[in-house]
Design a binder for these strands. Structure first.
Length: 284
DNA sequence: CACCATGTTCCTTG
DNA sequence: CCAAGGAACATGGT
């Protein structure tokens, strides 16, 4: 479940549950997600540490912890990859099948499960340095966006996935933002007109804000044992919940009628990822 | 068996 | 040095 809105919703959910909690034990079942941190390093840093804050940066969850000796704080970076989940469950409950890391918090256990193990749970913060501005932040201005796009001849869709240009948009919301802006995903980045850049800039923000708002109003089931709970809108067992599917205008809708003009939605491949768009509404 | 999947990172080529 | 393209990572669903 990972793009900016889903991570934002998860962070808002977890922050009040974690703040003030002390980590009493660390169980690493799939060390790969710690890379390059070693399991012993993680255990050493986390044992006895206390959660003091949790924020989102792009698609990362940044956990701020107070050291066990009380002297200073440090950061832990989490990333859900393609299939990651994070949630709390009662201490005695059985660990989910694909648990990568479990933290003993006393009565509860914090679980990071990740089927494909593309996610991260690490003390290494080097990945954050290469991130571009937050799409919903002040630094992401139309001027910045326009200037950045001028430097590339790649399709605009590919640039929206470039985390060094803007951080947090993924494949679904890239497609949705382009549809909302009525810009073709294949248009070379440097060929966008000023008006197209402005429309796309607004659409990116609008699509993300609406997704966060929507996720925020749904009652969530965060036990982690259900497949339809919360904002876990895709993947895992079961079908995508209707409530979410209706929100998507083009993503995963190839062959189905465009909700605006009824033309069949098209699927193409760009940079080895699927792109969905309406060939009539997004004709450039 | 084939192809597809919300993401990043590394390697190669130009 | 950079931009761009492709494979790799690992598992499961259809």
């Amino acid at each position: 479940m990972p793009e900016l809105p889903e991570v934002e919703i998860l962070v808002r959910h977890l922050a009040p549950l974690l703040k003030g909690k002390t980590i009493r034990g660390v169980e690493v079942r799939h060390a790969r997600v710690l890379r390059p941190t070693q399991p012993a390093q993680l255990s050493h840093a986390l044992n006895g540490a206390v959660f003091v804050n949790l924020i989102r940066r792009a698609k990362y969850l940044m956990f701020a912890l107070r050291r066990a000796d009380g002297k200073g704080t440090f950061l832990l970076a989490g990333h859900l990859g393609m299939t990651g989940r994070m949630f709390l469950q009662p201490a005695g409950a059985p660990l989910p099948r694909h648990t990568a890391v479990a933290l003993d918090l006393g009565r509860q256990r914090f679980i990071f499960e990740d089927t494909r193990r593309f996610g991260r749970f690490t003390l290494d913060l080097s990945a954050q340095r290469g991130l571009g501005p937050e799409p919903l932040g002040k630094e992401f201005t139309v001027e910045y966006f326009a200037a950045a796009l001028k430097r590339s001849s790649q399709g605009i869709k590919i640039k929206l996935l470039d985390q060094s240009l803007l951080a947090g948009v993924g494949n679904i919301y890239a497609c949705e933002a382009l549809f909302a802006a009525r810009v073709s995903p294949r248009l070379a980045a440097r060929k966008l007109t000023r008006d197209q850049v402005r429309r796309l800039w607004r659409s990116i923000r609008q699509v993300l804000v609406k997704a966060v708002e929507f996720g925020g109003t749904v009652s969530l089931d965060w036990t982690g044992r259900t497949n339809d709970g919360g904002v876990f809108y895709y993947g895992n067992a079961g079908s995508p919940p209707d409530f979410y599917e209706e929100r998507l205008q083009v993503y995963d809708r190839q062959g189905r009628p465009c909700r605006v003009c009824k033309a069949p939605v098209k699927r193409i491949v760009q940079a080895a990822r699927s792109t969905f768009y309406c060939p009539r509404c997004q004709r450039n």
